[in-house]
């Protein structure tokens, strides 16, 4: 079954490791994304209004929404992120570098990286 895993969740082990381990991985990947030249912000990977349950959980717990989501379907680790890009570098090139940096960090694990540029400029 394919499930989104969010940073900070604690749950039983999956085929690839515990949710907590994947939460740690998401934190690492956040650092990877933020370190790419041209990335000026990382937004919640899933906008809150697209996830009523997530929104309700945030209201109750005060937790920040996940900036990187990981979905493990045993064959591919899907990584999703939404970024803002400054105007100093071409936004498409920055998006490609983000995907490549994430993929490089995850090696040898196969991955599918989804990068959305949701803002261009300061």
């Amino acid at each position: 079954m394919t499930e989104p895993l969010e940073v900070g969740d604690i749950a039983p082990a999956t085929a690839s490791g515990t949710w907590a381990e994947l939460g740690g991985l998401a934190e690492q990947l956040l650092g990877v994304v933020q370190s790419v030249d041209g990335v000026i912000a990382v937004y919640p990977a899933q906008p809150l209004w697209q996830s009523i349950a997530g929104a309700a959980l945030s209201v109750v717990t005060g937790d920040a929404p996940a900036l990187i989501t990981l979905t493990d379907d045993d064959e591919l680790l899907a990584v999703k992120t939404r970024i803002a890009v400054g105007t100093s570098r071409p936004a498409p090139a920055v998006a490609r570098e983000v995907a490549e940096a994430v993929r490089r960090h995850l090696l040898p694990r196969p991955a599918a990286v989804d990068v959305s540029v949701v803002k261009v400029g300061a």
Binding site: P47, L76, A91, P92, A95, R96, A99, E100, R103, P110, A111, A112, V113, D114, V115, S116, V117, V118, K119, V120, G121
Partner: peptide, 25 residues
Amino acid sequence: PGRSIPLQSGNPNDTLWETEGSISA
């Protein structure tokens, strides 16, 4: 956000986008 505008990716497993809203802004 508007429509999703695809960007070329360096890997067939990857999907890269810009939102229409980001370009309008």
